[in-house]
Design a protein around this nucleic acid. Structure first.
Lengths: 208, 208
DNA sequence: CCAACAATCGGCAATACTGCTGATGCTGCA
DNA sequence: TGCAGCATCAGCAGTATTGCCGATTGTTGG
């Protein structure tokens, strides 16, 4: 059974081209192609395609908002962004809105069809460069900046265990040091972070 | 010029096997293989490889912390996780710590070599399933706390105070209820979140 | 060499927390 | 009406934490 696909793309030649690619493919069927987010939101719920190809630059409502709405209306739909924007913000917002894949135009026919199959199968197709940007956004999210810097390496290790919910004893076992040493490190951590309990330290470390 | 690679993997047969794969490849050179994070941290800075293959399950310090240290010491190193853990927490922590790729064991030789080339070239190699989990973590970041949903409104209030670092007594005073009631609420929170301490509860609440 | 710091270890007392046993009153729902 | 869940309260025993007093061993920089 072919995968049903809908297209949201305002550029008419490109829309036709994408539609053509899908129609020439054996395992895909294009069930609709729309030039605006408004048209897409009105028609797509009735078509309930399995995959939607979405542009970001659209007249009126943009593609990211359209993704957000579609994801609410159709919980099972897989959305594949197809756009020229490769900035981290566009990528981040699209994925947060509910898209599962992200391709850059221009895209080769074979690549597009492979990505449709992949996203339908539960993957998250994207190019190497996009994937790296996604991964880098994690580093920003996980970095602790100033507060962590003033701690010694060993103190940061101990704090890592506290954050994971380990007790003094468990931390001592994991690190191969004595309970007393863990105790001392934690005292110093509290002094440096100006806190009085594990919960406060964890909260401070995981960003307020 | 071949890509220089170091391996951190406690299982000796696997370590040898990985090393063998690298040695048979024309464009890679294995410059070191270590059985523990501690060994790796001591030796790798002197070797300054371009890529590190890192296991998560290690005796003593785990692979995630090792990644964090290595990323601090060698800013240009590309780290590729090679592990059996495909849970979102392991993936998230690894990428936050500074890894750029994530492969699951067992891995085919060709796949490993392609991933090394990819990560060195600035990509973020990972399997389809891993990529989807990464993308899904964005969706969670955008929406709010599924884990919090199962808590009653009053329990969420209490948890909010715990997250701010308040003690039982302080929370009771702030909420205008007794210490005992706070105690009871917290017991229920622990049961629902499957944790055994404030630190774990705070970590779970903040990280989801 | 000295000072400062990191990392290691120990004891003790005062709290704080956790897990367990209760209990009451209220709501909403079948 | 009865049951389930929420919110409130209390006591007790055991464990964990925190704060403060020590200490030794290295390393690093001036």
């Amino acid at each position: 059974m072919p995968i049903t696909v809908a297209i949201v793309e305002d550029d008419a030649p490109l829309r036709a081209s994408l539609s053509g690619i899908l129609q020439r493919a054996a395992n895909c069927r294009c069930v609709g192609a729309f030039a605006s987010a408004e048209d897409a939101l009105r028609e797509i719920p009735g078509l309930s395609p399995q995959v939607v190809l979405m542009d970001i630059n659209l007249p009126g409502m943009d593609g990211v908002q359209c993704v957000r709405r579609l994801a609410e209306l159709l919980s099972r739909v897989q959305i594949l962004m197809l756009t020229v924007h490769d900035d981290p913000d566009s990528i981040f917002e699209s994925l947060s809105a509910g898209a599962s894949g992200y391709l850059l135009k221009p895209v080769r026919a074979a690549e597009l069809l492979a990505a449709i199959k992949d996203v339908y199968a539960g993957g998250a197709p994207m190019t190497s460069n996009i994937a790296r940007k996604v991964v880098q956004s994690f580093k920003r999210a996980g970095s602790e900046a100033d507060d962590g810097k003033q701690l010694s390496p060993r103190e940061r290790d101990v704090l890592d265990y506290l954050v994971k919910g380990y007790s003094y004893k468990e931390t001592a076992d994991q690190m191969g040091i004595s309970y007393s040493t863990v105790h001392t490190h934690i005292e110093h951590i509290y002094q440096k972070l100006h806190v009085q309990s594990r919960a406060q330290a964890v909260a401070k470390y995981l960003r307020v």
